[in-house]
């Protein structure tokens, strides 16, 4: 695809976008500005082989576009963004950026070509990774810029979203050799990769996320079938785990954000939030078996590929509509600075 394409000389930053990412006016300039700020300039440590200070990648906030009444399917309306009316509620703060000074690169952003290439030189054999953004962000040091925003459409069709989730899960599990520190480099030898602890944690957290649907499913089945388990307790427990994250934003919306909102209008807003959250919970439970099946399939496929058959080429696609939506890193725009 793009590996034989080298950047024209004199290019310092590259902005990567997907085909459907929308860049608001001025965002590119502000990204370059943030990147060029003296405090953000990347400092590459040749000994560790990664960026240790500043940022070689900046990840702006990516917000799903609000579905319009005419276009958005029910699925898109219920699952894009957090349950609740304020789509920005969950994106202004990020635990990793706040606590550890580095965010996660999710494939859309800006990078410093030289520092980025230096940090990733010789790291990964060709075609070993399907999803490399998080990995790149760990070595090149990614910063999350929440005040610059990209917009992206959320899939309207469940099957399209499923193809995407399956691919992401496979990409996450392909990183397992790096998490446990026994990954091959480009020369085929096994080196002890110097991945910072927080980087390993991020990759591990992705694995945890892919396991949550299968775990919830297995817990329910175990709760119903094991002779010593109490079906009521275990069912309530799993349902609570699914419902609480969706219902919490409704609670915080109970208090009006500003004065001067009529009681009736406030009640209606809370009611809408509640219906949305309830539909979210209902659909999550309904789709739990499918999600468990999907994730298990992705995990088993990847593990057998990485550890048993040892085929290098990842299964890139089933050719469906969701395929085009993946994060390929096209050199969509060059900014010479």
């Amino acid at each position: 695809m793009v590996e034989h394409l080298s950047a024209p000389s004199g290019v310092r930053y590259v902005i990567t976008l997907d085909a459907d990412t929308r860049l608001p006016e001025g965002a590119a300039c502000r990204l370059v500005g943030t990147m060029a700020h003296p405090l953000n300039r990347p400092r590459f440590d040749p000994r560790l082989g990664r960026v240790v200070e500043g940022y070689a990648v900046l990840q702006p906030r990516v917000t799903p576009t609000l579905p319009t009444d005419r276009e958005g399917s029910l699925y898109q309306r219920i699952f894009s963004g957090p349950a609740g009316i304020d789509p920005y509620a969950s994106a202004v703060s990020d635990v990793y950026q706040d606590l550890f000074g580095e965010g996660s690169y999710i494939g859309k952003g800006i990078y410093d070509v030289d520092a980025f290439e230096a940090a990733l030189a010789g790291r990964v054999p060709e075609n070993a990774l399907l999803s490399h953004d998080l990995f790149e962000g760990i070595f090149a040091r990614a910063g999350l810029v929440t005040d610059i925003e990209f917009f992206e459409e959320f899939p309207a069709h469940y099957e399209v979203a499923v193809v995407r989730q399956h691919r992401w899960a496979r990409g996450d599990w392909q990183l397992l050799p790096w998490i446990i520190g026994r990954a091959p480099d480009t020369s085929g030898g096994r080196i002890h990769a110097s991945i910072p602890l927080i980087g390993r944690w991020k990759m591990l957290d992705n694995l945890r996320r892919t396991l949550s649907a299968p775990a919830a499913f297995v817990t329910l089945i175990a709760g119903w079938t094991l002779p010593f388990a109490s079906p009521v307790i275990w069912t309530t427990f799993v349902l609570a785990c699914i419902a609480i994250p969706s219902l919490l934003p409704v609670l915080s919306g109970l208090i009006p954000h500003r004065r001067g909102i009529s009681k009736r209008s406030h009640a209606r807003a809370v009611g809408t939030d509640l219906v949305l959250a309830a539909s979210h919970v209902g659909l999550t439970v309904t789709l739990l078996a499918d999600q468990a099946w999907l994730m298990t399939d992705a995990i088993v496929r990847t593990l057998s590929r990485v550890y048993v058959t040892r085929t290098k080429a990842p299964r890139v696609g089933d050719g469906s509509a969701g395929e085009i939506r993946f994060r390929p890193q096209p050199l969509s725009s060059f900014i010479a600075a």
């Binding site: 005419r70 399917s73 469940y158 309904t286 739990l288």
Partner: peptide
């Protein structure tokens, strides 16, 4: 029952309005 019907539900929620 919900899980058996989930393919239909998935189809239904994916329809354009």
């Amino acid at each position: 029952l919900l899980w058996a019907l989930s393919p239909m539900v998935a189809y239904w929620i994916s329809l354009p309005p």
